[in-house]
Design a protein around this nucleic acid. Structure first.
Lengths: 119, 119
DNA sequence: ACCAGTACCGACTAATTGGTAAGTGTAAGA
DNA sequence: TCTTACACTTACCAATTAGTCGGTACTGGT
């Protein structure tokens, strides 16, 4: 046994998308190729280190590909592969659900921070 | 600002399902109420501590509910709430994708463990 | 009497993950 | 010339997350 056997497809997906920002990166890349700096601004709060680290992992996993324009002030873009596309499309329903329940989720998360403040 | 503002619905979902085993727990609970020991056996590799911790969080977040039969050798069951149901249903497509691409994902994950062993 | 099992708690430790801050080399703009 | 920006790296530290082990209160089987 190698830990590579998934008891349910969910685990396979989780193995690919584990990492605080990966789903967000995929989401933004679903709208087309972006360069590094663009992503850093789109995925607010991500540190440069984590962005690049996750980007590298996603490239290694064949989910996105890196396009280097070989110019001297560097210009690099990232784009979803077909595999990544199919994965990114799965996120749309989650995103929609989250948008619908934003208020509910926000109040749940707040309740976690300030415990029992209600009557 | 409180960190409770999501730039995309995805973050809301992630706020609820962050935790190594939560998606798996929801998945198993989608098949009906289960008692603690059952879940511990279903979600293989989970430690008792993590299971219970996640279960508690999910209860606090209103995603599942705890049914205590008040018997003396304790008997407790966990069941999805309506809210949790709607969340759990989102996981089905992910699970299906993972099942379809199991082989591909498995080889990707292995490539991460043993770096460059190929010709 | 003793051990196993139920659901759960708490202290302590280990591993993973995330974050900060600095530096690289080049070139365009002020 | 001095600063900014590009994409990225490295070293180091903090926070989160997970895991181990032992204990609780009770009962049923042997």
């Amino acid at each position: 046994m190698s830990g590579t056997d998934f008891q349910c497809g969910l685990e396979a997906v989780l193995a690919l998308l584990g990492g605080k920002w990966k789903p967000l990166i995929l989401y933004h890349l679903a709208g087309g190729a972006k360069r590094t700096g663009q992503l850093r601004r789109l995925v607010t709060n991500v540190s440069e280190k984590m962005l690049i680290q996750h980007l590298k992992e996603l490239v290694e996993d064949g989910i996105i590909c890196r396009i280097d324009y070989q110019t001297v002030p560097p210009h690099v873009e990232y784009e979803l592969t077909d595999f990544g596309q199919s994965l990114a499309q799965l996120l749309a329903p989650l995103c929609a659900w989250g948008t619908q329940h934003t208020a509910e989720v926000a109040s749940i998360v707040q309740r976690r921070d300030h415990p029992a403040e209600v009557a």
